[in-house]
Amino acid sequence: MTYKPEELAADSKSVFGFFTYLMTDLVLFAALFATYAVLHSGVFGGPESEQIFNAPFALLETVILLASSFSCGMSLLAARRGSSRGVLTSLALTFILGGTFVVLELSEFARLAANGAGPGVSAFLSSYFTLVGTHGLHVAIGLVWMAALCVSIYARGLTRGNMRKLALLSLFWHFLDIIWIFIFTIVYLAGIIL
């Protein structure tokens, strides 16, 4: 496909702008990580990390999210091939995996809250729920975006605008994956092992 210069310029502007926004999101998560680091010892006599974190469960969530990143990558390959069907299939798979991730996370939150380890119990739990929950919220928003984009691709095909939005969405999705790797390491692994 050949593109007009102003279209390329518009794409490069959008990608730059979105990437800048992602960097602000990175700062946001950094502040949440810093808060977690300072407050994770503030258990106020209540449950501590190794008492409440479940390693296999966290690993399952990780695998699901990584798989969803893979299927998101597949959607970009399909887009490059010009196959809107391929894109929709890959995005649907990504959506299911991402949705499963969110459901699993919510179920873990519910289990903890029911067992006296809710966010209002101590500073440690407040910072855990908020850090992990903010990531989950971003994933959920990504799912809404994904659904809307699928509707647009279904209705209009792989237009220039849809291609651009797909590129931005996949940037967002991979970014959330990276944040999760940090969460898995700093919150779950360190919390269970150290």
Binding site: L28, A31, T35, A123, L125, T130
Partner: peptide, 26 residues
Amino acid sequence: PVLTVTLALLSLDRTLGMHFFTAAGG
């Protein structure tokens, strides 16, 4: 983004009973 986080955490303390910055609760 740091302001966004800080205001959000204070709001979570006040609205959902969390303990980021309370005197007690860690």
